[in-house]
C-alpha cells in the first residue's frame, strides 16, 4: 500500500497575531496559512489591519503577541533570513533624487548581493518583465504613478523571492496601468510565486486571486477560495434582468412575488435573488414574469460579486 502524499507545508503561517498602537487594537488574533503557489487577496476597509499585518509579515514591524513564519522561519527572530525569501511592495514609498531608473535598480541589485554578471542579467530580465527598458535613463523620481509601481515591482523581483507581499499595488493607477499591473501579477502567479496582495478593488482581486482573506476590525472574517465566495450558497440564485420600458415595473413585480428579492436596480432593470438555485425554479420565475406581462428583454444568471460577498460576510458578523 502506497503512503498518502505528505500534507503541504504552509509557506506563510500566521498565528494569533496581535498588534496595537496606543489604545487602538489594529490586529486582534489574526491566524491563517498560505500554501506555496497560492495567490491570496487580502481585503478589508481602511484601518481594518491589512497594512499592519503585512508590515509584520515583511519584518518591518513587531507584533505585540503571536507569530508569523515564512517557510518555517520566524519573522521576528530571524528577520534577515526572512528578508531573503520575501518581496515587499508598500502602498506608498518615495524615490531617490539624482538617480536614474537603471541606477535605482542597480543599487538594489547590489544590496541584494547580486554580483556583476548576475546583476546585469537580473536587471535585464526584470526591466523587460515590467516594461521599463525604455525608461532606463529616466530619473527615478520623475516617473508617472504607473511607471513608479512597475519600478517598485521590478525592485521587488530583483532577488527572485518565493513570496510576494503587495500592499495596495493598484491604488491610484489609471485603468490602463491597472490592467497592465494585473497582467503582471497573473504572469507572476503563473511562474509559481506565492502572492499575498491587498486591495480595495474587489473585482480586480477576484480576477487575480484564487483565495480571499477578509479582515475587519483586526479580525479575520473569512478565509476561503474566491470560487466558494461567488457560488456562496447553493440555496440561492442571482439573476440579472432587463426589461423594456419602465424599469420600475421590475421592482413592482418583485414586490408582489414572495421568495424573490431585488438586490439592486439599474437603468434597464435590476438584479434579483431567488431563494432557490434549482434550475426548475429559475425557469418557473422567468415563465411567471412573462405570464404577468413583464416585458423581459434579458434574463441571465450571475455569479455573486465579491463586493456582495464581502458585505454579506460583514453583515453576518
Amino acid at each position: 500500500m502506497s503512503e498518502p502524499p505528505p500534507l503541504p507545508v504552509p509557506i506563510i503561517s500566521v498565528r494569533d497575531l496581535h498588534r496595537s498602537f496606543g489604545g487602538v487594537q489594529a490586529v486582534r488574533g489574526v491566524s491563517f496559512d498560505v500554501y506555496p503557489g497560492q495567490v491570496v487577496g487580502f481585503i478589508g476597509a481602511n484601518g481594518a489591519g491589512k497594512t499592519t499585518t503585512m508590515r509584520i509579515m515583511a519584518t518591518l514591524d513587531m507584533p505585540d503577541a503571536g507569530s508569523i513564519e515564512i517557510s518555517g522561519t520566524d519573522v521576528v527572530n530571524f528577520p534577515t533570513e526572512v528578508r531573503q525569501m520575501i518581496g515587499w511592495m508598500p502602498d506608498s514609498y518615495g524615490s531617490y533624487e539624482h538617480m536614474t531608473v537603471l541606477e535605482y535598480l542597480d543599487f538594489f541589485g547590489r544590496a541584494f548581493g547580486l554580483r556583476r554578471e548576475a546583476r546585469e542579467k537580473q536587471l535585464r530580465e526584470v526591466m523587460e518583465f515590467t516594461d521599463l527598458a525604455e525608461l532606463a535613463t529616466r530619473p527615478a523620481n520623475k516617473l508617472s504613478k504607473g511607471q513608479n509601481q512597475r519600478l517598485c515591482l521590478a525592485r521587488t523581483l530583483l532577488h527572485d523571492p518565493q513570496v510576494l507581499i503587495l500592499d495596495e499595488p493598484a491604488a491610484g493607477l489609471d485603468p490602463k496601468a491597472r490592467i497592465e499591473f494585473k497582467n503582471l501579477v497573473r504572469l507572476l502567479a503563473d511562474r509559481g510565486k506565492t502572492i499575498f496582495i491587498s486591495s480595495h478593488i474587489l473585482s480586480e482581486l477576484g480576477e487575480m486571486c484564487d483565495t480571499m482573506l477578509f479582515i475587519d476590525a483586526g479580525r479575520v472574517v473569512h478565509f476561503g477560495s474566491a470560487e466558494s465566495l461567488r457560488t456562496h450558497s447553493s440555496e440561492e440564485a442571482l439573476i440579472d434582468i432587463r426589461v423594456a420600458g419602465d424599469a420600475g415595473a421590475l421592482s413592482a413585480w418583485v414586490a408582489m412575488n414572495p421568495g424573490i428579492v431585488l438586490v439592486d436596480s439599474h437603468r434597464e432593470g435590476g438584479r434579483v435573488r431567488l431563494d432557490s438555485a434549482d434550475p426548475q425554479a429559475v425557469a418557473a420565475c422567468l415563465r411567471k414574469m412573462v405570464a404577468d406581462g413583464l416585458p423581459v428583454t434579458d434574463f441571465h444568471r450571475e455569479a455573486r460579486r465579491l463586493e456582495d460577498a464581502f458585505v454579506d460576510i460583514l453583515k453576518a458578523q
Partner: peptide, 17 residues
C-alpha cells in the same frame, strides 16, 4: 529623510544591515 520618504524600509529588506 529616508525614513520620512518610506525608502528606508525598502533598503532594509535587502541584505544591508
Amino acid at each position: 529623510n529616508e525614513i520620512k520618504a518610506n525608502t528606508l524600509d525598502l533598503v532594509f529588506l535587502t541584505r544591508l544591515t
